[in-house]
Design a protein around this nucleic acid. Structure first.
Length: 569
RNA sequence: GGGCCUGUAGCUCAAUGGUCAGAGCAGGGCGCUCAUAACGCCUUGGUUGGGGGUUCGAGUCCCUCCGGGCCUACCA
């Protein structure tokens, strides 16, 4: 049994995430974590909220709350929703934790000692009215190229030209609207990523089995133009990990904090330390290669927008520290999920957000659809029609109805216990041969994190049960040969347990309901299908479950379609 | 502008350069009656975006054109 460290990109604290965010990192990471646990591996599954940065400060100000309070509240909200989706984190941390503060400062210090930090003095836009420096995109004005009056300081949304805030005509603060802006000198720390370019390139080159999406984005940043650039890792903000601290190898950084993208990935480690503090566990054996982590397999999950930071910046931090930290082994990245012909939009309330999704349907419905349509090779699209037909067909008709027909048939003919007697024949052998092949295929796909294909294979495994029932037709056999019907029904009821075990990574609640109905807590993986189909013995009592998955009606679908078209309350 | 990804059946997607390009859904037909009007079997449906090239052989490799998407370093 191996040890697997799994991290999901950490969601930003500012608001509730939509389904596209969920399917891009947390959900597939959970699928993989659940699968590996089911196979008996030791798993550490880490996620957290990313709490620093300008948007958090502004959201808190808008809510009229101190930023620390705002983050604490939003963390609880996100944690509750994550539980609702059954995301099985071993720890859901906070990047604002004391652990992350200490570790972030530690890494910065180590990098400086290795000569990988340099100080840069530059001029940035300062808003006198807001009393703060503003990131480029928090400045708006008229585009000098096309005249668009709401061009952002970094880029014009209308003509897509890249801009510099000083180019804008009549620049104003997005926050206050104030035009009292000036360029002020400010000093920042830069991470010398360029010095590690060759090392990083060699490392990326060695990852021949990574998704093309991952490596192509990394290569683009490594080799485009002048190559990998040094990156500012501090900001003029108050909310964050202080850049000036006791023992810091620099001075004059008072009032500045580390850039969120510097401290956010470090939180993967810090969150494991938080876990250790809470449980008494040993975090070092997951992260320090000198303390047992050299036999850990580390897999990261993220949307494509996160790839540069995970392939370059964070590895630069890890490698640059010259300390024995565990480096990622595999980066599974995802494209975007679009919503009904356009993008999900937080600001315009377009699309389904995580809290809303759970209000209208149980988690399993969303988990199944999202995972079976995961945007692995290209951007994917959510439509209500597709969601309705997929869920109704796959979950209600193929799996749910299988459980229903088997349990109800047994109850009416034999009672609510596995009937005794009879022997199986070639038909059962045929089924087992097919299951054997398909389960092994399913395992391979899950190990390779081929999410869509694994879902398709799982569905085929469900279908095999219906095919078998149709061919064996115990309702016919029962009339002439009840013993044989008993053996057939016994096998089919055992199949329900096997389906629960195989399906649990995708639909954990339904799987639990199936196991409960079968009166068993035996979650043993079907390594040998013959043995797996004999786990529940003759005479074993079961209960006939309620409908596992209700169907989505046309009227509901139409209502939801209208409700989520835009303008969130 | 540059780079990357993508275009395959009505829809969503598969296919190490190698049988007749396959699945699911939708459509059509038949069967079954245990089941959530569910299930099973059969079946219709394709100039693989257009054009050119390499090859014994191209959905796959090369060139070009057209469409869609993403990234382009101070949102995270």
């Amino acid at each position: 049994m191996a040890r697997h460290l799994i991290t999901s990109a950490i969601p930003y604290i500012n608001g509730i995430k939509h389904l596209g965010n969920l399917v891009g990192s947390q959900l597939p990471a959970d699928l993989y974590a659940r699968y590996l646990r089911a196979r008996g591996h030791e798993v550490m599954f880490i996620c957290a909220t990313d709490e620093h940065g300008t948007p958090a400060e502004l959201a808190a100000a808008k809510a009229g709350k101190p930023v620390a309070d705002y983050c604490a509240e939003m963390h609880e909200v996100q944690a509750r929703i994550a539980r609702g989706f059954r995301l099985s984190f071993d720890h859901f941390g906070r990047s604002s934790s004391a652990e992350n503060r200490a570790l972030t400062q530690h890494f910065a210090k180590r990098l400086a000692e290795e000569g990988l930090i340099r100080e840069v003095t530059e001029k940035q836009m300062y808003s006198v009215a807001d009393g703060r420096f503003l990131p480029d995109r928090y400045i708006e004005g008229t585009c000098p190229n096309c005249g668009y009056d709401s061009a952002r300081g970094d880029q014009c949304d209308n003509c897509t030209k890249q801009l510099d805030p000083v180019d804008l005509i009549e620049p104003r603060s997005v926050i206050s609207g104030s035009t009292d802006l000036e360029m002020r000198e400010t000093k920042h720390l830069f991470l010398c990523q360029s010095a590690m370019k060759d090392k990083l390139a060699a490392w990326i080159d060695s990852k021949t089995d990574w998704p093309v999406l991952t490596t192509s984005i990394a290569r683009k940043w490594l080799f485009d133009g002048d190559g990998l650039q040094d990156r500012g890792i501090t900001r003029d903000l108050s909310w964050g990990v202080p850049a000036q601290f006791d023992g810091a190898p620099w001075a004059g950084m008072d009032g500045k904090v580390f850039y969120v993208w510097f401290d956010a990935p470090i939180e993967y480690i810090a969150a494991t330390q938080e876990w250790a503090a809470a449980t008494g566990g040993d975090w070092a054996r997951w992260w320090r290669t000198d303390k047992g982590a050299d036999d850990v397999t580390y897999t990261q999950f993220m949307g494509k927008d996160n790839v540069p930071f995970h392939t370059l910046s964070f590895p630069a931090t890890i490698l640059g520290s010259a300390e024995p930290w565990k480096l990622v082994d595999y980066i599974k990245s995802f494209n975007y999920l679009n919503y009904d012909g356009g993008q999900f939009s937080t600001s315009r309330g377009r699309g389904v957000f995580m809290d809303q999704a759970l209000e209208i349907l149980p988690a399993d419905y969303w988990r199944w659809w999202l995972l079976s349509h995961a945007p692995e090779n290209s951007d994917a699209e959510f439509t209500w029609e597709n969601f309705q037909t997929s869920v109704n067909k796959d979950l209600a008709d193929v799996l749910g109805n299988f459980v229903s027909r088997v349990t109800k048939f047994c109850r009416s003919k034999f009672g609510e216990a596995l009937p005794a007697g009879g022997v199986t024949g070639p038909r059962e052998a045929e089924l087992m041969a097919e299951l054997e092949t398909r389960i092994r295929t399913y395992e391979g796909l899950m190990e390779a994190m081929e999410v869509r294909k694994a879902a398709a294979e799982l569905r085929a495994i469900w279908v095999a049960g219906n095919e078998y029932l149709q061919a064996a037709a115990p309702w016919s056999t029962f009339k002439t040969d009840p013993e044989t019907a008993a053996a057939q029904v016994r096998l089919a009821l055992n199949l329900v347990r096997v389906y629960a075990v195989l399906s649990a990574p995708f639909i954990p609640d339904a799987a639990a309901a199936m196991l409960a109905a079968m009166g068993t807590e035996d979650r043993s993986w079907p390594e040998d299908i013959g043995a797996a189909l004999a786990v529940l013995p003759e005479g074993h009592a079961f209960t006939t479950p309620d409908v596992l998955f209700r169907k989505i009606a046309d009227e509901e679908r139409e209502e939801w379609q209208r409700r989520f078209a835009g303008r969130r309350d």
